[in-house]
């Protein structure tokens, strides 16, 4: 019922990785996708962007990125970019919306070291609703 697409794009640098994750949230207002993104030990932070339907009246899609005791929120119709400085390790992310109705969204994400170089980035999906 739900379309799911996950692909990674390699950039020119051998250490650079840019990633997209596209998915769909189901009709129910409680629908939530849950993923975690692993950054290697060289990472200083994770960069995440979210995009979705911006037409008037459509649900606002939100993503919460959290690690250890810190959390940040981004939305498809407001601030849709975050740089979350949490070092290496697993960043968890929940994606949801504020109204009923199916919506598609895309995440662009990558881990970065302190110099802005992209580092190893792996995504795992825990829940797809």
């Amino acid at each position: 019922m739900k379309n799911f697409l996950f692909f990674a794009l390699l950039s020119l640098s051998s250490k650079s990785f840019a990633h997209d994750f596209s998915s769909q949230l189901g009709n129910d207002i409680s629908s939530t996708d849950y993923i975690y993104i692993s950054c290697d030990n060289l990472a200083d932070k994770i960069h995440v962007e979210i995009s979705g339907n911006k037409s008037a009246g459509s649900p606002i899609i939100s993503a919460q990125i959290f690690k250890d005791t810190k959390a940040k929120n981004i939305t498809s119709q407001g601030n849709n970019i975050v740089d979350f400085q949490g070092g290496g390790g697993a960043y968890q992310m929940t994606i949801n919306k504020n109204k009923i109705g199916m919506v598609n969204y895309t995440l662009v994400y990558h881990c970065e070291d302190a110099n802005g170089e992209h580092t190893e980035t792996d995504l795992n999906e825990l829940q797809n609703q």
Binding site: I29, S30, T32, Y34, S62, N96, N98, Q127
Partner: peptide, 15 residues
């Protein structure tokens, strides 16, 4: 406002 409740590998969203 919205809230997310997370337990293990499960999460639910509520407004």
């Amino acid at each position: 406002l919205a809230a997310q409740v997370i337990g293990g590998i499960k999460v639910k969203n509520t407004v």
